[in-house]
Design a protein around this nucleic acid. Structure first.
Lengths: 230, 230
DNA sequence: CTCGTAAGTCGTCAATTGACGACATAAGAA
DNA sequence: TTCTTATGTCGTCAATTGACGACTTACGAG
């Protein structure tokens, strides 16, 4: 069964590099490094962070040894992929657009989440994020505390302004409320990309439904909270 | 570095078997098999489906060879764990209670999800489910089509009855609406157990907030759908 | 053209890892 | 007690896998 592994690796090489790879000769340091990172993000998303360096090298169309010219260990390579792909997938402009009160909150939220689903909550991003979260519990909190928390607060501020209510002082509780929207849409993406659920309802319509429900139910949710904590 | 792996395995043995293991002598076939499966579910949840058989054997307090007396391959062992832990974690009584109209929908839904979070959406269940879904895309759909879909329909039927509205004929669309609740609560569990987010807001209160928002926003969501598809 | 340097590969090592044949031993039936 | 049998372990094999020393070769400056 010596051939088993080799056959698999060969298959990987053909699958992922047939398009642009094959005739790429020598590359300067920075370019090769970038190409490896790009391929590696696809590779680890597909095969998990335990994917083997030999297969990755085949996917890159280079020798396994070459990987170690750019990254001291496999762990470092994985960490770099994580930094590039996970932490770098958020558009700063989103915060601006979300606070543009010339449009209704429903319009802004819908536009944001349609974009967010397409740009960030992709199959690749989700798989990397989940693999990383499962193997190292310290990775996800980075993303959440640094970015998502800000997003939650903007969402709640804009929604509350739109429907004319006051929010509780407890920030944790306010975050939890915003998660009802952000979480349900994130889970929608997980369902589609990770669980491979069928999705015959158009994406934009799904987003609209989630946003509409959030804006229509927010008042009642805040009331429920206040009734509990008075 | 020969000692590295051994030290790790030893650590595993102490951690997971110190309580009941240690003095357990020979066991009849069925009992040993059950004990291995129980330990294996914890082990694979923690270490992923690529966790090694030697470490698992240490956690069980038996030799690695013994595992192969019960399961022909590691893959079979993993599959059996999945069947036991994932597919067997749903209480039939839930469907009954959810349709008991002597209580309000809000009460029923809240009680159900508090129980569901404690019984099914545990750290162990979620980790196994996600690891399995990531490595084999055919696993999650089993659970979803066989169980969750029924749940979604019950939720929608009861909610629609409670607030006195008609549901669209498109079943897929109705499912998608129920997912706004089921998904947001599932994602809440993922946040807590996988992303290790902090959770200072009491669980029961969070569930109440999600349910309240769902029941309060459902009418608007259905309207939004009908407006789009008339 | 020549030569230094950086890009890239080959082959290998030590540790790991799934799997299993051969052997050892405890528990119960006769 | 003795013998059978199921329970359980030891040691090992072949394949894998992260890592790296030694070597080769393309490319550009002079």
């Amino acid at each position: 069964m010596k051939a088993k592994s080799d056959a698999l690796r060969e298959q990987v090489r053909k699958t992922s590099s047939a398009k642009k790879e094959g005739g790429s000769g020598r590359l300067p340091h920075a370019e090769r490094r970038a190409q490896i990172l790009e391929t590696a993000s696809d590779f680890f998303a597909e095969n998990g962070l335990t994917g083997q360096t030999r297969m990755l090298a085949d996917a890159c169309g280079v020798s396994q040894r070459l990987l170690y010219r750019f990254f001291p260990t496999k762990q470092e390579l994985v960490a770099e992929v994580y930094r590039e792909e996970i932490l770098g997938a958020f558009k700063a402009g989103w915060f601006v657009d979300l606070q543009n009160r010339n449009l209704s909150a429903e319009e802004r939220f819908t536009a944001f989440y349609v974009d967010y689903l397409e740009t960030t909550l992709t199959c690749k991003w989700l798989r990397l994020f989940l693999y990383a979260s499962l193997s190292d519990a310290s990775m996800a909190p980075d993303y959440i505390t640094s970015i998502v928390t800000q997003l939650l607060e903007v969402l709640m501020r804009e929604a509350a302004h739109e429907i004319g209510i006051d929010l509780p002082d407890d920030r944790e509780a306010v975050h939890e409320m915003a998660w009802t929207l952000h979480g349900s849409i994130s889970h929608y993406a997980i369902r589609r990309h990770i669980y491979k659920a069928s999705w015959n309802v158009p994406e934009k319509q799904v987003v609209k439904m989630h946003v509409r429900m959030f804006l229509a139910g927010l008042g009642a949710m805040v009331e429920a909270y206040n009734a509990e904590n008075s």
